[in-house]
Every structure is written in C-alpha cells, then in structure tokens.
Design a protein around this nucleic acid. Sequence first.
DNA 1: CAGAGATCCTGCAAGC
DNA 2: TGCTTGCAGGATCTCT
Length: 288
Amino acid sequence: MPELPEVEVVRRGLLRWVAHRTVADAEVLHPRAVRRHLAGPDDFTHRLRGHRMGTPSRRGKYLWLPLEDTGQAVLAHLGMSGQLLVQPHSAPDEKHLRVRVRFTDGPAGDTELRFVDQRTFGGLSLHDTTPDGLPDVIAHIARDPLDPLFDEDAFHRALRRKRTTVKRALLDQSLISGVGNIYADEALWRARIHYERPTATLTRPRTLVLLGHVRDVMNAALAVGGTSFDSLYVNVNGESGYFDRSLDAYGREGLPCRRCGTPIRRRPWMNRSSYYCPRCQRAPRAVS
DNA sequence: CAGAGATCCTGCAAGC
DNA sequence: TGCTTGCAGGATCTCT
C-alpha cells in the first residue's frame, strides 16, 4: 500500500526514466483509471500527445509530471494497488494494465510507461497548475512532513483545535499528507501514543516527538526503497521494497511487542485495522 | 460546519 | 470441492 516513501521512490524512478521524454501516444485500457479526468479518456490521450514531460514532483501521496508548454500536469495517485512501471515495449501486458504511454525518444527509447492497478482506487488525470506548479485539484492537500516548508507549529495548533483522535488526524491529508494506515500505526507505536487519544490532549512537545517519529519511520522506509506488505506494490522499475520486514506494529497481531513483549493487538477501526501495544500505548479512559 | 461513517474495487484466504 | 464471507484501505461522498 503506497504511502509517502513508496510514492517518493516512484517519483525518483520517473525522474530517471520518464522526465524530458516526449509523448508519442497514450492508451487508456480502463476508463476508471482516468475517472478524475472529467473530460474523458479521449481528451486525456489527445492532450498528452506530442508534449514533453517535465521534472516530476510530489506532495504527500500525489505525484505529477508537468506537461511542458501546456500549463498542465499529469497527476497520479496510486491508491491501494497502483503501480507505475517502465517496461520494454516487448513485455507482455500486465493483467491489470490500465494506461500505457509511449514516447518518441529519450534515454530509454525502447521503454514505455504503464499504469497498472488491480483495485482501481488510483488513477491518472490532467489538471491546470497553479503559479507554484501545484495541480489545482490538490491545493487542499497539506505539505508532508518531509517537506522543508512543513509548518510544525501550525500542525500542532490544528491538533489542539480539532475534536478528533490522533490517528484520524494523522490520516487527514488536509492536516498532514503522506501518512497512511501503516506508517500511522508505526509512528504511534514509536511515540507510545494510543491511536484513540484525543488530539486536544497533545502537548506541543508530544506533537513534535510524534512528528519526529513520523519522519523517522518514513525515512527508514525510503532508505530501503519503500515498503511492500502484500506484494502488490512495486516501484517504477518493478522492484519490491523490503521495509515490511522491519515493521514494529502493523500486521503483527499476537506477536510480542519488540519493546515489552506484550502481544500486539489488532482492533477494527474505520473499516480497517489499528495495531498497537496495549502496554506501551495506554488507552485514554474507557477505550480498550 | 465539523466529524463520523459508508462507499468504491478486486483478489485472496478462511470457513462451512 | 465450491460457495460465501471477510479483509485490505485512500479519497470522496453522504449523513448527522
């Protein structure tokens, strides 16, 4: 499940293999993959044709490739199971191939870009960019914690203002972007904070410590090329990450906490799961 | 208006 | 064996 580190690995792959190449042709094999491009698949492919890709950028889990001389950018979100693969033309189509982009030239002239997505939560679309280069439809996405301009004070003030719980806040992309279910559980475990702690109870030092752990766990994942829990995720060249081997909480139900040995618990939460150590991460009040 | 919950989608695994 | 059910979950929509 791609979160910020995985998306960043993909961005670096695009920088190496796709940036500065000119689109010869694009092909949409499943309309749902471009559903956020409201003008439809034909408009999507038509607008790509003949334009050169610029340098890829990322905010949180979104990444985009500027289309030179158009004022627009190709926006990508991998959703749950999306992959951007650079493949030789000769490679057989993947089972869940949704979009193919061919190029006229470039450093890897015998390759094409493929968007592959089993569960079709992800997709590609074209959008106007704001003066700072951001696609207009993601203006509401907050900066991510690896962004040098991320505002820690503003984040903490927002937490104090909210009447919600800390994990919900970590997953709220308008407060802090790039954090998904896996790294939220990992950062909370490292910070010894229960996922249902009300955000209004966090002191400023506690918020800063939590942010530090969010960054640490993301940087650790980045260092090994992203994580892959269910093998659906691979990076832009098809390599899996290895970070899943060093997860401390997520997916470890019943296994001993690496700090205190208490079995890790899994609790249903927002149609998904939260993993935590019941001893290290004490519940606030009546929550079990 | 903020916050909580439902929903989309597919493949795999578990259980009967 | 073959069916049903549950689970994975980011972003968006709907409801309270």
